[in-house]
């Protein structure tokens, strides 16, 4: 591999294997992530997407090679959080275990410019506001890579698009690298540069635009199974 190639990549993963409770969850995982790009991670439930994130965050043991080509600061947005029952304001949450000074700046990055939100309790926010606040939390410490585990989980389709547009803006303005777990092919096509499809192993790795091809979809989802259609009555 040439020097230029090496400089282009932020993360290189080779022969990654994750075993939990004597069960192989992921095996023979190989992929690279280029700086300043978005890698979408796609796959059915139980494919090992979140497990991959947790291994890359050093939350789970693994074998194989995970190489960061420079010192990285990771901002992480988990799929599920428990906030409904906790009396915690947005302002307090954003400064929890991190730099208080950047809290308001992070909120404006996620387009929550109305300052009254700072004093609201997390539990009363709408689904879209909460996801933006979680992304803002991940941005407070000024990371250079974002791990987003289904960042629009639990919010309606209409509110999803503005969040991905906002994330694209952050990626461009901050030269951010993004790893994004999603179920949505449309999001992969529109808002990611590369695609890693998983189903216990890698079923596809390449440019996201490839997903438009039928052959790629067959690789990811398997051969289509046709059902017998009803014949129109004469």
């Amino acid at each position: 591999m040439s020097t230029t190639d090496k400089e282009d990549y932020l993360l290189k993963v080779a022969n990654l294997k994750i075993t939990l409770q004597n069960q192989i969850i992921l095996d023979n995982i190989n992929f690279n992530v280029k700086k300043g790009t978005t890698l979408a991670i796609l796959g059915p439930n139980g494919a090992g997407k979140s497990v991959l994130f947790r291994a890359l965050l050093n939350l789970l043991p693994y074998t194989g090679n995970v190489e960061w080509t420079e010192k990285v600061k990771i901002g992480y947005v988990p799929q599920n959080v428990a906030v409904s029952d906790i009396p915690l304001s947005v302002k307090e949450f954003l400064s929890i275990v991190q730099n208080k000074a950047n809290a308001e700046n992070a909120l404006s990055l996620v387009k929550l410019d109305d300052k009254t939100i700072l004093n609201k309790r997390l539990g009363v926010l709408s689904g879209g506001q909460l996801r933006r606040v979680l992304i803002a939390w991940a941005l407070v410490d000024e990371p250079n890579i974002l791990f987003l585990d289904e960042p629009t989980n639990g919010i309606d389709v209409g509110s999803e698009e503005p969040i991905f547009l906002m994330l694209n803006g952050i990626k461009k303005s901050k030269k951010m690298t993004i790893l994004l777990i999603t179920h949505d092919i449309h999001i992969v096509q529109e808002y990611s540069d590369y695609l890693l499809a998983l189903n216990k192993c890698v079923t596809f790795f390449g440019k996201s635009e490839e997903i438009a091809r039928l052959s790629t979809q067959k690789t990811i989802y398997g051969e289509p199974v046709c059902v017998e259609t009803l014949k129109a009555e004469d």
């Binding site: 947790r54 965050l57 939350l59 990771i74 992480y76 988990p78 599920n80 959080v81 428990a82 906030v83 906790i86 915690l88 949450f93 929890i96 275990v97 991190q98």
Partner: peptide, 19 residues
């Protein structure tokens, strides 16, 4: 206090912050 609150919100989030 704040570390425990963060762990209640998400244990992974807390561990990822080195707690």
């Amino acid at each position: 206090y704040r570390k425990l609150v963060l762990a209640m919100i998400s244990e992974d989030l807390a561990i990822s912050k080195g707690i």
